[in-house]
Computed example of a mutant assay.
Amino acid sequence: MRIPAVVSVVFAGCLVLVCQPAHAAPLGMERVLHVAAEVVEYECTTDGVTEKQDVKINVDLTMPSNATAEQQMSIGWHGTYVTGSELRAPAADLTGVKLYAYAALTGIEDLTSATGVSEPLSVTAGQTIPLPETTVSMKTTSSKAGTARVRPAAVNIGPSSTAPVIECEVRDPAALTTYTLPVAQSSSHTSTSPTPDSTTASPKPTRTVTATVTAAAADENDLDQEFTARQEVDETPVGGAATGGGGEAGTDGRMYVLTGLVITLAACAGLLLRRRPRSG
């Protein structure tokens, strides 16, 4: 009885180790996962057809792990139809058309979209338009570093991106999940401090020469001023007050004043003598 009990215990332990819960995932799987899958609902309009088609596509976006500013990066696009919601060709055959896939980007200035194109497709009228089996590379370039937010955008069918035959627009863009895309700084923007150039420094002899030239200029100015002063003195006219000579110019006037005073006194004395009464 003891042997079967031991065997049952060992068997139960093996079941615990081997049969782990279905939701369990290997450690670190999320760190290597770069694919974002989501069902996107489109409203498709065909050129020349009034009726629109409702299409659902399982879209897988593969984010680049080394996106760098000023370098072209690629976001992978792969789609599969939800059963019963396929896109069908119009009444006329489609020959040589391509699928153009777009992604909308926000969060970085001047980075708004990424575009990818498939190999040419040939579709019989009224049949389901096949989606590319391989991943379509949507290419874009960011001029700046930062973190972009990515979500699926339009899908067009036509001979060129500017002449679509079928245009499929996302029915509710705000309902879609946005995925982050880090964009690293370009190495060309790494700035280095410029090394000072010793040859541009002003040598000491320059200051000595400047001082000498300044002194010479000062001496020359002094000589000019002295010459001007001498010239003004030599050219000053000799004469009366009208020429600026003043009391120091011409004959001394005090002699005339003194002579006139003597004559006046003599005249006064003569008058006094004539008025005295004669005696007897």
Rank of each mutant, 00 (worst) to 15 (best):
T212A: 06
T208H: 13
V123Q: 08
V238G: 04
T115I: 15
I157M: 03
P120V: 03
V165G: 03
Y100S: 01
R230G: 05
D234C: 12
S161D: 09
A145H: 15
R149L: 05
C168M: 04
T124D: 13
T228W: 06
P182I: 11
D224R: 15
T128S: 01
E232R: 15
N221W: 10
T190Y: 14
D172A: 03
S187V: 08
S113L: 12
A154K: 11
Q185H: 14
S188T: 14
D197E: 11
T206K: 08
G239Q: 07
P173E: 08
T228G: 02
P173Y: 10
G146H: 11
T106V: 05
V123H: 03
A163S: 10
T147S: 08
T180F: 05
H189F: 13
F227I: 10
T195R: 12
V117W: 07
V238L: 05
E167M: 08
D222M: 04
Q185E: 13
T208K: 11
H189N: 15
T106R: 12
S187K: 15
D110V: 08
A215Y: 13
S142A: 05
A125D: 09
S118Y: 00
T192K: 14
I108M: 09
A201T: 14
I129A: 00
L131C: 00
A218D: 09
G116W: 00
T135P: 02
E169I: 13
V233S: 10
V150Y: 00
T141W: 03
Q127N: 14
R171M: 06
K139H: 10
L176A: 03
G126C: 01
D224K: 12
A101D: 05
T124E: 15
T210C: 03
G116I: 01
T112R: 15
D224G: 00
E109M: 15
K204R: 15
P152R: 02
V183E: 04
V136I: 07
L111N: 01
T112E: 12
T178L: 01
T124M: 14
P194W: 13
Q127G: 06
T128N: 09
K139E: 06
A101E: 00
T112S: 08
V183R: 07
E133H: 08
P196H: 10
P203N: 03
M138F: 05
P164E: 04
E133I: 04
V165Q: 09
D219N: 13
Y179G: 01
C168A: 00
T178Y: 02
S202A: 10
A229Y: 14
D219I: 15
V123Y: 04
V238I: 08
D172W: 04
F227N: 06
E109G: 10
L176M: 09
S137K: 11
L176H: 02
R207S: 07
V170W: 02
S142Y: 05
S186W: 09
S137I: 03
Q127W: 14
